[in-house]
């Protein structure tokens, strides 16, 4: 991929800290996190369980308020739930009483988009994600991978400038996950949207991202932000076999492992 010319920042997280009050004590989930995500960039966040990765996404979506610091989404400070985003959850979170098609169109209905446009976008996305033929199936009739595709279509329907994904493939088997990864890469290239992806999988992060944000154990801090340039991402197995891929995953594992060891 040729490098994009410098664009304005899509998401700007500035000195953000989050503390949760539990019965026993105050827990610091995030501590002084500062990140800038450029427009059209693909950034992954990896880190050990409970490091506040998911909280970071919810902060960007305005679903959680920070205790300190500030978040800016597309130039506007985030103070309440934002709707100029698409959100994909770990669980597909489909409405089990709606068909595949109507789960996707829900996004447009809630936003009062014109009916014709909803139909057109839905058809496009169903085609793009390989859901053709399943439009009238109910969620329970689909496998986990297919459900997550529906969830992705729903998140993309309104062409959100920013797509937030919280471990979207965490519940899938390894093979399906690889397949979904290369599909997501293609979809990202086609839609040119900014993506912020939270994942447990180092390989997934390196394969998909232009930059990988490595976080420490709780309280979550940014350990390092690694730029990744893979020679040929469009060929999944080639990209995974490249020296760059090996070097990057090794570095991330080292960061995560080292941190775990002396903690």
């Amino acid at each position: 991929m040729q490098k994009q010319p410098p664009l304005s920042s899509a998401v700007s997280i500035d000195g953000v800290g989050v503390q949760f009050r539990t019965k026993r004590a105050d827990v610091t989930a995030l501590d002084n996190v500062t990140v800038d995500v450029r427009e059209r960039e693909f950034v992954s966040i990896v880190g050990p369980s409970g490091c506040g990765k998911s909280t970071l996404l919810k902060l960007v979506a305005g679903l959680v308020r920070p205790t300190s610091g500030s978040i800016t989404l597309r130039g506007e400070p985030v103070t309440s739930p934002r709707s100029d985003i698409g959100f994909v959850f770990q669980k597909a979170a489909l409405l089990e009483w709606r068909t595949v098609r109507r789960n996707i169109t829900l996004q447009g209905e809630m936003r009062r988009m014109p009916k014709a446009e909803i139909a057109r976008r839905t058809a496009e996305l169903i085609e793009m994600t390989g859901l053709a033929g399943f439009e009238d199936a109910m969620p329970h009739e689909l496998s986990g991978g297919m459900q997550q595709r529906v969830s992705l279509c729903r998140a993309l329907l309104h062409q959100p400038p920013v797509l937030l994904m919280d471990e979207p493939f965490g519940a899938l088997d390894a093979l399906t996950r690889e397949q979904m990864n290369s599909e997501l890469h293609r979809i990202w290239q086609e839609t040119r949207t900014t993506v912020l992806l939270v994942t447990h999988s180092v390989a997934e992060a390196v394969y998909l991202s232009e930059r990988v944000l490595v976080m420490s154990r709780r309280p979550g801090r940014v350990l390092e932000v690694l730029p990744v340039e893979l020679p040929d991402r469009n060929d999944y197995s080639k990209a995974m076999a490249s020296a760059e891929f090996g070097a990057r995953t090794a570095r991330i594992r080292e960061l995560l492992g080292a941190r775990t060891a002396h903690d």
Binding site: L63, P81, S83, F87, L95, L106
Partner: peptide, 27 residues
């Protein structure tokens, strides 16, 4: 209802009434 469902509704710009009618009540 799964709290994530309500989060989802928020990202779609749903107000309290829409959240009830479209998400909470059917669930």
């Amino acid at each position: 209802i799964d709290p994530e469902m309500l989060d989802l509704a928020s990202t779609m710009g749903a107000g309290p009434i829409q959240k009830f009618l479209r998400f909470r009540f059917p669930a």
